[in-house]
Design a protein around this nucleic acid. Structure first.
Lengths: 138, 138
DNA sequence: TATTAAACGCAACAGTGTTGCAGTAAAAAT
DNA sequence: ATTTTTACTGCAACACTGTTGCGTTTAATA
């Protein structure tokens, strides 16, 4: 993704395009799957941890990224799809954790099968799957 | 639940039936839904936090309780159903968070609808729902 | 009742979340 | 291009949770 594109993306969301932010966005964007927080830390260890914390929060608040986690695993970060860049997050996807490579993927799904629970009024669904991902199968 | 029952339940799992443990199990068992960690803390604030930590871990390890959480919320604890008291945890249930009373329920489901993802081999499914619970509907 | 194995409380350290504040850099206005 | 405004950054600091070690106490059992 082009740096000027990222810059205007940030500006559109009233975020200043500082070098760290550009780098952070690129890093998460290009990672190929949701990024474990510890990876981000390692990659940006020169950045103050409070700044990192605030930057991630800001990007999540503004809809540029979202948090994803499976079970007790550490939090992961992933860039939002096009549909999320508006004010509201629309996450028609499930989180898939590969037992093999341990990567966490955001896999889009078209209209999650609604789940009926007797007596409960279901409004939102979050699904986390695990198994073996595309890359790790033959 | 009878105290002597809880005692033998603990002993069956090679856990000593100390007063704190009996009380803790009763508390979580009788809560009516999964218990937020902070509630447990408040209820057992005379207990050393490390002891509480180890006790909860022990009970989860031995299959007497399990952890449940939805989104970024704090961890909740719930007693396991009968099927879990063996060595393996069998959780044929979803976690339902009520937007109204904010309680987190473990709702049993018979055979979760399998989800097909092109290219991925799905082995486990975790589902978290939110909406309005039985009690909060008219 | 004596023995043994487990649990308890305390001290201590690491990691993360969170806030306030003063210095700095990006964006907008002139 | 320079100034002004706005927001980001880094540092200090505090709270909370996770985690381990260790010596003492208590439950289970012989």
């Amino acid at each position: 993704m082009d740096t000027s594109q990222v810059k205007s993306l940030l500006n559109q969301h009233k975020l200043k395009a500082t070098p760290s932010r550009l780098a952070l966005y690129h890093y998460v964007h290009d990672f190929g799957s949701a990024v474990p927080y510890s990876n981000i830390q390692d990659e940006f260890k020169d950045l103050d941890r409070v700044t990192l914390y605030r930057t991630l929060n800001a990007m999540c608040d503004k809809g540029l990224m979202h948090r994803a986690s499976v079970g007790d695993d550490e939090v992961h970060y992933a860039v939002c799809a096009h549909s999320c860049t508006t004010t509201e997050h629309h996450h028609d996807h499930v989180h898939f954790k590969c037992d093999d490579c341990e990567r966490l993927y955001c896999v889009p799904t078209k209209g999650l099968s609604t789940i009926e629970l007797d007596g409960y009024e279901v409004r939102e669904i979050q699904i986390q799957l695990s198994g073996v991902c595309k890359g790790c199968r033959g």
